[in-house]
Structures are given as structure tokens and as C-alpha cells.
């Protein structure tokens, strides 16, 4: 009997569990980000790698410091700080000074996550919050874009600038992103270049093709909700399509809209952040359509060439409200209430 008694540890049902775990899901996201990082290295060389490594280091460090009191090292093991770091890096221009990247990472975790109480408690996507902070603090550096191509070992711009200095653009080559060319000069960009990522832009946003594959993979693994990217992309296509049909000389085509800038990266990796998107399918449609509308509004009429970041942050802010109003009807009740 003694052997048997050992087995009788008390606990309550259910005794079996699905295999998905939170860290497991986070690491799946990290794996899909790695190919994008590699392509970015191909286009932007060492700069892209340095920025990512710096951002990840900053985020991990911040996670350790801010969460030490509560969960110790354990909160690191969920992998979410690494994702935040990589995503933050992906939204930055290749020539961005590394010290600014570092600050961005600290802000992303500190203000984007830890301040709210850690994983799952935040309202805004931490990476985007970090990026928004950098945009406000360093408006020039963040809009200085360098060309893809060039030697791998060459830095693209002012990565090495000393802290609190803007630094000089080392190779002096800058170029406009497809979106700013469109916005300010009404010049389009070859769609093949957009798909392959052979354009200037943030380090992780340029290769549309890989991002789409990553999205399909994450959907198949049930890590992201397909409704989010689909609702965003549909809204952007339809909304921008209407204007394109009205005047194709002024307004960009829906295909250009979708493949350029950070839209795909945002739709697949950022808007889908589980924590900051609505819980119910109904809510998710509202969320996605909202983002789509804001993206088109900002891109076509706002002062900035790109609007994905603000569109997602705005809808992040609306998510608690959406959750409240998209409360589901409980089984056996007529309309939510008895």
C-alpha cells in the first residue's frame, strides 16, 4: 500500500492539459522572426544585426530589472521580452544610433509592460510603445533611411554615434522609403521589390513575402487569430481601393498600400499581439477594421507617410472598451442578461 499512497497526491480536475504553453507560443513567434532577421541582414548588413541585438539586450535587461521583485528570472523564460526586442528593432531604420535603440528597448519593457504589472497586463503593444517614444524623442534619426544593398560589414548610417549625439551618417547615402516617395512625390515602387524587401525602410518591414509566410505559419499553429491580419488588410484594400479608383494619380493602389511600409509587419506581428487585441471574434473584427481605416487615413491625409504604428496603438487603447461592448451572450440567456 505504501507505493500506492505515494501516488495519491491531492489536486483537482482537469488532470490533462493541452500542449500549448505561453512560452511555447512565444518561441514559435521568435522562430518566425528569425528568417526575417536574416533577410534584413542581407539587405542592410551588419547594422540590422547590431540594432536587433541591442534591442533584445535592452529588453531582456529591463525585464530582469523591472520584474526582479515580483517573479525574478522566471518572467524571462516566457520569451516575450525577446519578441518585444526583435519587433522594436524591426521598426527602426538601419542607420539608427544604437544608444537610442537601447533606450527604446528599456522604454518598451519599462513603460510598455512592467509598469502595467508585467506580461498580459499592458494595454499597448510594448514594441510599438517603445517605437512611439523614439519617434517623439528623436524625430530626425528615425526618419533617416538608408539604401538596401552595400557591403555587409558596412554600417548604414549613424549606428555608432556616441550617446546623446545624433552622429553623422557614415556613408552619407540616404533614400526615401517607398511610402514617402509616394506621399511626397507620388512615385510608386516596383511591386517585386516590395515583396522581396529590396527597398529602403525599417529593418524588418521590407520583405513582404516572408512576413506573409510567417503569418500563415503562425495561423496554422493557432498562435495568431487570422481575423486580425485579414480584417486589417481587407479594410485597407477596400478603403484605399475606393480612392485609387477615384484618382489613381494621387492615391496609391491597394497592392502598394499593403506591401509597403510596416503594414504587413504590423498586421501579422503587432496587431495580433494576444495581450493587446480583443478577446472575442466580434471585437477582433472591430479592432482590425479600425486599424485599417486609421492606416489609410493617416497615410493618405495625415502629416506622416506611415500610420501603422499609431493606428495599432489607437486601437490598442480602444481594446478594453471593445472587450466591454463585445461581451458575449452566455448560453441559456437571451441577450447577455437574464
Amino acid at each position: 500500500m505504501s507505493d500506492k499512497n505515494k501516488a495519491l497526491i491531492i489536486s483537482t480536475s482537469p488532470f490533462i492539459k493541452d500542449k500549448d504553453t505561453t512560452p511555447g507560443m512565444m518561441y514559435q513567434v521568435i522562430y518566425t522572426l528569425i528568417p526575417i532577421q536574416l533577410v534584413s541582414f542581407y539587405y542592410f548588413g551588419l547594422s540590422s544585426l547590431l540594432i536587433s541585438v541591442t534591442a533584445i539586450l535592452a529588453c531582456v535587461l529591463a525585464e530582469i530589472v523591472f520584474n526582479k521583485s515580483k517573479t525574478g528570472i522566471k518572467s524571462l523564460s516566457d520569451g516575450s521580452a525577446i519578441i518585444t526586442g526583435m519587433l522594436l528593432a524591426f521598426t527602426l531604420p538601419p542607420g539608427f544610433p544604437l544608444w537610442m535603440v537601447f533606450i527604446g528597448g528599456i522604454v518598451a519593457i519599462g513603460m510598455g509592460k512592467a509598469m502595467w504589472g508585467g506580461l498580459g497586463q499592458n494595454i499597448f503593444n510594448p514594441a510599438l510603445l517603445g517605437r512611439a517614444f523614439l519617434q517623439a524623442a528623436f524625430p530626425t534619426a528615425i526618419t533617416t533611411w538608408s539604401n538596401p544593398n552595400g557591403m555587409y560589414a558596412n554600417l548604414r548610417g549613424a549606428n555608432g554615434a556616441f550617446p546623446f549625439m545624433q552622429g553623422l551618417n557614415v556613408d552619407g547615402i540616404t533614400s526615401a522609403t517607398p511610402l514617402s516617395k509616394m506621399k511626397f512625390d507620388h512615385i510608386g515602387t516596383n511591386i517585386i521589390d516590395l515583396l522581396l524587401g529590396n527597398t529602403s525602410g525599417s529593418i524588418g518591414e521590407t520583405c513582404a513575402f516572408l512576413i506573409i509566410i510567417a503569418g500563415i505559419y503562425l495561423w496554422a499553429k493557432k498562435i495568431i487569430n487570422w481575423r486580425i491580419p485579414i480584417s486589417i488588410l481587407l479594410t485597407v484594400s477596400i478603403f484605399s481601393g475606393i480612392f485609387y479608383l477615384l484618382d489613381p494619380n494621387i492615391y496609391p493602389s491597394p497592392i502598394f498600400m499593403i506591401c509597403s511600409g510596416g503594414l504587413l509587419l504590423g498586421a501579422v506581428f503587432m496587431a495580433t499581439d494576444l495581450v493587446t487585441s480583443p478577446l472575442t471574434s466580434k471585437g477582433i473584427w472591430v479592432f482590425g477594421i479600425g486599424i485599417g481605416v486609421f492606416v489609410v487615413l493617416i497615410r493618405n491625409w495625415g502629416g506622416l507617410p506611415e500610420g501603422v504604428m499609431y493606428a495599432i496603438l489607437l486601437m490598442n487603447a480602444a481594446t478594453p472598451l471593445i472587450n466591454r461592448y463585445s461581451k458575449m451572450r452566455t448560453y441559456g440567456y437571451k441577450n447577455g442578461m437574464k
Binding site: M25, K74, L119, L274, L279
Partner: peptide, 9 residues
């Protein structure tokens, strides 16, 4: 291990 709710739905 137990983690915070990540609102995955």
C-alpha cells in the same frame, strides 16, 4: 508553470 493571462482568448 503558471504565467499571467496573456488574453489569448
Amino acid at each position: 508553470d503558471q504565467y499571467n493571462c496573456i488574453k489569448c482568448g
